[in-house]
């Protein structure tokens, strides 16, 4: 076994055992933070599937919102279990992605324009959720209907955070697997070619529209799953936290911070941003509302200026550079 694999295995074992480490009164809090890191890392990975190929979406909140509200409303009004609801959520998100991405691809909308179109889509979903307040609860949001017991597999609601911890861990690993699969596939080469020069890619026989649509719908579907997971965990959905510009930008920032071209980039970025905002919240408390985000915003600007490849991306590149001359003496 290579040292890398051994390290990965050790990390996995540590993660699997973590909930049983005695932490006194801190356990619930630590678990809460780690669960959030798992879920948002998964969403970040889904975003980076597109982002790394130059399809920069500033509207992934739309897919989060569609996912989370679909399962929540189906459960609240019709009692449909989220296990089935998530299928509807993914299909709806993919449909939305198709409706947006197909014309974008056909009419050659890329770069700034693609980013702004997706931004508009995110806003449309947020405003629709607010406007349809009779059944979405408007800007007040909706609380998931309680299942009546502390642990319900049917409703995916558990009082014990450890269930969500393992669920989040599985989700995160699945996200990593999808990312790695795409990374090793033909689609990656095709998408990279498209990202560099669409016309040139088409001229060598790459079906530009098919690949773009495929990756966009995959990303949207996974993001919807992430939205469902978050809604199930928090048991409350709200248009501001699950749709619109704010959350969409947060996803993008976390990924760019970590590095979108490397497997663990989104995870590192998400872990850092969540850890930072939790730390600042603990340090500054409620006395200085907004201080945490202020420092967060400032750090983002500084990072984008000085470390554009992301933290993990830069470290990974540095390690690679050091290793290459040793492996291949000139």
């Amino acid at each position: 076994m290579s040292p890398g694999r051994l390290l990965a295995l050790a990390v996995l074992v540590a993660l699997a055992a973590a909930p049983f480490v005695p932490m006194g009164g801190m356990r619930q809090y630590v678990l809460h933070v780690v669960i959030q890191i798992f879920i948002w890392s998964f969403i970040g990975q889904a975003w980076s599937l597109m982002g790394r190929f130059g399809l920069v979406s500033l509207g992934h909140g739309a897919f989060l919102g569609v996912g989370a509200y679909t399962t929540t409303l189906l459960w609240n009004f019709y009692g449909l279990t989220p296990w089935l609801g998530v299928v509807a959520a993914v299909l709806l998100a993919m449909l939305l992605a198709f409706v947006v991405a197909y014309p974008c691809s056909r009419f050659g909308i890329t770069g700034h324009y693609f980013a702004l179109v997706t931004l508009a889509v995110g806003e449309v979903i947020r405003l629709l959720l607010i406007a349809e307040r009779d059944w979405t609860g408007g800007s007040l949001g909706v609380t998931l209907r309680a299942p009546g017991s502390d642990a319900s597999l049917l409703a995916i609601q558990y009082a014990d955070k450890r269930v969500f911890y393992y669920g989040g861990l599985a989700l995160w690993l699945a996200g990593l697997w999808v990312w790695a699969r795409v990374d090793r596939s033909m689609a990656r080469s095709a998408m990279e070619a498209i990202g560099e020069d669409e016309t040139a890619a088409a001229s060598v026989g790459i079906h530009v529209t098919r690949f773009k649509l495929g990756i966009t719908m995959l990303s949207a579907g996974l993001t919807a799953i992430g939205g469902v997971a978050y809604a199930q965990y928090i048991a409350y959905v709200n248009p501001e936290t699950l749709a619109g510009i704010g959350v969409s930008l947060r996803i993008v920032f976390a990924v760019v911070l970590g590095g979108m071209y490397v497997l663990l980039g989104p995870t590192v970025g998400t872990a850092l941003t969540i850890a930072l905002s939790e730390y600042l919240r603990v340090v500054f408390g409620v006395k200085f509302i907004g201080m945490a985000e202020t420092i967060y915003g400032l750090l983002l600007v500084i990072f984008i200026i000085f470390l554009p490849a992301g933290i993990y991306g830069s470290v990974a590149a540095l390690l690679r550079r050091r290793r290459v001359p040793a492996a291949a003496p000139a």
């Binding site: 993008v252 907004g290 201080m291 985000e293 202020t294 967060y296 915003g297 400032l298 983002l300």
Partner: peptide
């Protein structure tokens, strides 16, 4: 994104 970070900064 850099100006987006500025947005976060100013807003908060």
């Amino acid at each position: 994104l850099a100006t987006g970070g500025l947005l976060f900064f100013i807003q908060s």
